[in-house]
Write a protein that binds this DNA or RNA. Sequence first.
DNA 1: GTCAACGTTCTTGCATACAAGATTTATCAT
DNA 2: ATGATAAATCTTGTATGCAAGAACGTTGAC
Lengths: 216, 216
Amino acid sequence: MAENVVQRLRDEIENGIISNDFAPGARLDEVQLATRFGVSRTPVREALMQLNAIGLVEIRPRRGAVVIDPGPHRIFEMFEVMAELEGLAGSLAARRFTDADRTTILAAHADCERSSSAGDSDLYYYDNERFHKAIYAASHSGFLAEQCVALHRRLQPYRRLQLRVRNRVATSFAEHGSIVEAILAGDAERARTLLRQHVSIQGERFSDLVATLASR
Amino acid sequence: MAENVVQRLRDEIENGIISNDFAPGARLDEVQLATRFGVSRTPVREALMQLNAIGLVEIRPRRGAVVIDPGPHRIFEMFEVMAELEGLAGSLAARRFTDADRTTILAAHADCERSSSAGDSDLYYYDNERFHKAIYAASHSGFLAEQCVALHRRLQPYRRLQLRVRNRVATSFAEHGSIVEAILAGDAERARTLLRQHVSIQGERFSDLVATLASR
DNA sequence: GTCAACGTTCTTGCATACAAGATTTATCAT
DNA sequence: ATGATAAATCTTGTATGCAAGAACGTTGAC
């Protein structure tokens, strides 16, 4: 796993941010991280530079690194873009999927059914991720798949909240059903539309969530 | 300009890659870059880490950094994604543009007309960039705009080639005309489709170019 | 009691140092 | 002459050191 220290640190810190271990706005102290991971400041700095380039961390000159807080509006914008990319992935998948892709998608979909009907939202979260990744793979566009995975990952904490909302898991699974249908039928435009909506809804739900929280 | 050394290096090296000063596959020697820019290896490494995170360079453990060569297929994939994002930007712009946006877009379009009719493909290149950036801005999605600018930048060397192709400048400008019309008319779907095609064509042209070169 | 100016301390930014792995070169055997 | 092996050299990866700027606390004035 650990090719070198910097990559390991990058992943560790990134995971910490994604899992909200390092909350938005939190200061990332170099020596603190260095002692925590038992290395010197140099690789820590290099890892922070990478996270800065990705947009997860802001480095203010002479004032250290902080976890970026995108803010509700920007998160909504990110969902908007995600919806578009997923739509593209779906439309390409519908045109290009192979037998192997079909098998993978159906397997992931079956797992989603299992965790959905079990009402296990945490398990559904992972199965859902596999389902979407199966679609990215079926698009046979490596670049698109990478972009989708990266964005998916960055939006992870915000999507996770939503699955707790009443009925969201069941609704999500129902939407998956139509998406699978459209893709396997080779209906690119329908797959695109359905996936776009599937993701958009998450963005809208997020807005609702924010509005609800704000009004209290 | 130079907030700090690392950012300056990052930009310098990135520009070097974009402008093909550092060709794909070229090795980026740390001490060489350090002496060239009159700094130590540390900031050079930090800059390379950032470029690695963006996907412009590959860092092979213990074997140094090389400029990534995307290869024709991946470049085509990047155009595919770019087309989608531009389409989204166009559709959002059609729904959200302000008076100020209209002015900026029309001004950029007028400049494109000037450089197009003058047959100055280098000047058109810059005016074209401003035109597209005006649309990103009019989308009023900061995240989308950033993604578009980043991808636009990475595809720069490949797009630049195409403007040299016979009639491409004139065709491009004609397409801009319809795009402006659709956006200012508030026709989101038409703006999306036109922009998607406008960019897709570049990807296809790139493929043609590669095919032509390969067949010789 | 509050606010401001100053000095201390802490943190970052870059340079340098050193160790370990990769590459190249030279030597030797076939 | 060619191939392999080993030594020398070069490069990267990480640690440490030092200087400059920012944060913080203290002291003093009003």
